[in-house]
Simulated assay, not measured.
Amino acid sequence: MNPEMNPNIRKGRLRPLITVAIVLVFVLIVGFNAVSTVQYGHVGLYKTFGRLNDSVLEPGIHLKIPFFQSIIQVNTQVTKAETDTSASSKDLQPVSTHVAVNYSVDKSTVFNLMNNIGGAYDSIIINPAIQEIVKEVTARYKAEDLIGQRELVAGEISELLTKRLAKYDLIVNEINIVNFKFSDAFNQSIEAKQVAQQQALKAENDLKRIQIEAKQKIAQAQAEAGSLKLKKQEVTPELVQLKQIEVQEKALEKWDGKLPSVTGGATPFIDVGQMTGK
């Protein structure tokens, strides 16, 4: 019988190969589990048997104990948290505020944050803090002032939130009040007030225009009266006589030497000598 056809012999030859393959697979698994990568914009912390190590790992490849140790990653980039808050203004108007907060984690103290709060710090710390502080600041202002002094309101919220989150090593980078939403009745009253203000402004502008036009007419009339007065002052008997002479001279220049024909009635008397200067 051919030895190569013997099943026992074939199995005996395959066993070393199978063993080597198993060892290689095990080594590969162990190798993969012995290395971990911390992504850019993050820092890492070793977690061994559920316990965190306070050594902060920078982005890059790091070794770890396979199966017993892991590396948790914490995002240190600027992150946005958006929250809707319902509150009442100083004049008891219901106000819904949509706030966007940009924050980041201080990587030098990330161990304290993760060890004391955990990875859900946004829902445990940030959102409740935003809710409470927005309600507190909103209650200090009347509803109309919330609209007209939005930057001041945002500044107060940012100041209080910065102090609150600093206790947990969280950094507030920027806060924006995206929108204030009021009741329909309040919106209608604001609209009516704006319309009334616009009408009052138009009436005031019309009154000013009428006053200016009236002053212009008075000034024009005064100017015309002054001009007429000056003209009257310039008219003297000598000027009247001179004008009469100018009229007579123009009449003589146009006269053709013939007496006018008259039908019926008396012949008009004309002093020819006076006209010819004899």
Rank of each mutant, 00 (worst) to 15 (best):
F180Y: 10
P268C: 10
Q73Y: 00
F68S: 13
K202P: 13
L152P: 04
K250Y: 01
V137K: 00
I175A: 04
V172W: 03
P3Q: 01
A200Y: 05
L57I: 12
M5D: 09
L52N: 12
R10E: 00
R209E: 06
K163A: 08
L152K: 15
G226N: 12
V247T: 12
A81N: 11
I126Y: 13
V95G: 07
A81V: 11
Q39K: 04
A214C: 03
K215C: 05
L230I: 08
V35F: 04
L17W: 10
K90G: 06
N173Y: 06
F111K: 08
N8G: 06
D169G: 10
Q93D: 12
Q93P: 06
V137G: 00
R51C: 03
E238I: 07
F182W: 07
I61P: 00
V43T: 07
R140S: 09
K231I: 03
K278R: 01
K208Q: 12
I18G: 05
N116A: 09
G119W: 04
G50P: 08
A154W: 11
A143K: 00
F68Y: 12
V27N: 05
I270L: 14
V78Q: 11
I65R: 02
G31S: 11
P94Y: 00
F186L: 08
V27R: 01
Q233H: 02
A251D: 04
E234K: 04
I175L: 09
N102M: 12
V99K: 00
T109H: 07
N116M: 05
F26P: 04
Y40T: 10
V74Y: 00
Y103T: 06
S104R: 14
T138D: 01
V172G: 02
L161G: 14
V78G: 10
